[in-house]
Design a protein around this nucleic acid. Structure first.
Lengths: 169, 169
DNA sequence: ACCGTCATGTAATCGGTTACATGATTCT
DNA sequence: AGAATCATGTAACCGATTACATGACGGT
């Protein structure tokens, strides 16, 4: 059975969403991503087809396929999958995300900051506004984790807006 | 000649570093990355072998190979490469970097923030200290772009230290 | 002379992205 | 009924990561 696979962040996203949903098709997952963590961690929709397949082959998910029509695949987390998710959630990490910011890379190599600043500050401001609206509208009902990460996103965007706004001149 | 290739951030990093160096081997590039932008944008050293090859094949770099011994490859930016870099530096972008922060992803899926907070706040504080030391020691001599991106990194790390410190409880 | 570590490079694998393609549905 | 858009899925490619491998060199 199931050759062992490496679990990537994408894997945990699929596991986590499926655990919340109970059972879902790749398309359902796509919808869930769009309204939740898609804000700070996007995925290509094709990955939501290939990743569950990979996870199912390794025993983390079970698959049920419709007999009729679209023959959609419905996935569910198995006990093995639940355990993997639990372990991952329990492990702390010192790993830091690198900035990997395109605009900053340009600045590093000598681009004129003032010419990048308008686009960047606007784009960050738009994102900030979006986050703030989500928080205002859904804030109370959001699960604690979702809310907290949203707040982190707001902090981060504020920082970037400040940074780039200070460079317009 | 040269089938057209897509230029990725990695491509521009190689172009940018080579332009600064004049001529360099992959190993030289590795060294340069380590002491400069490696702080906020790391690369696998293998990429510093394959990417120049790719760029050379497409005419952005010229290659000179040692006849003796190691047969190292030395690369130089061609006029085509210089033009590509110039264009890229001149183009603004609205593209935002997603957070893609592992710890935050765990929080999103329900991990206990307080149990992640110590590792994360320490790790971010360490990175912050590192940046501050670089700025203190080399700040004055740094090229403007490098200095500015370093300052951005400092701002960002401060934000994360605050965020995670506030969750320890 | 040997050992460990840094220097240097290549090969294989795999996740992720891009591109393509075809059902459903809604709107006019 | 046709067009447009959304839903759903597969295939191919490719950049990036991982693993492997050997050369050079400083120290004991």
């Amino acid at each position: 059975m199931a050759s062992e696979i490496r679990l990537t962040p994408t894997s945990y996203i699929v596991l986590g969403l499926l655990e919340a949903a109970g059972e879902a098709t790749p398309y359902d997952l796509k919808q869930m991503v769009a309204v939740s963590l898609g804000n700070f961690w996007t995925l290509q929709h094709a990955q939501l087809y290939t990743e569950p397949e990979r996870l199912a082959a390794a025993g983390y998910l079970s698959e049920r396929r419709e007999e009729q029509g679209r023959r959609r695949r419905h996935y569910k987390v198995t006990e093995k999958g639940r355990a993997a998710m639990r372990d991952w959630l329990g492990e702390s990490t010192r790993q830091l995300t690198e900035l990997r910011d395109l605009a900053l890379l340009k600045v590093f190599f000598g681009a004129n900051p003032a010419s990048l600043a308008p686009d960047q500050s606007e784009a960050h401001a738009a994102k900030l506004a979006e986050y703030e609206q989500i928080l205002a509208q859904a804030g109370e009902e959001l699960p604690a984790g979702a809310r907290l990460s949203l707040e982190a996103g707001i902090d981060a965007e504020r920082g970037w807006v400040d940074f780039w706004s200070g460079l317009k001149s």
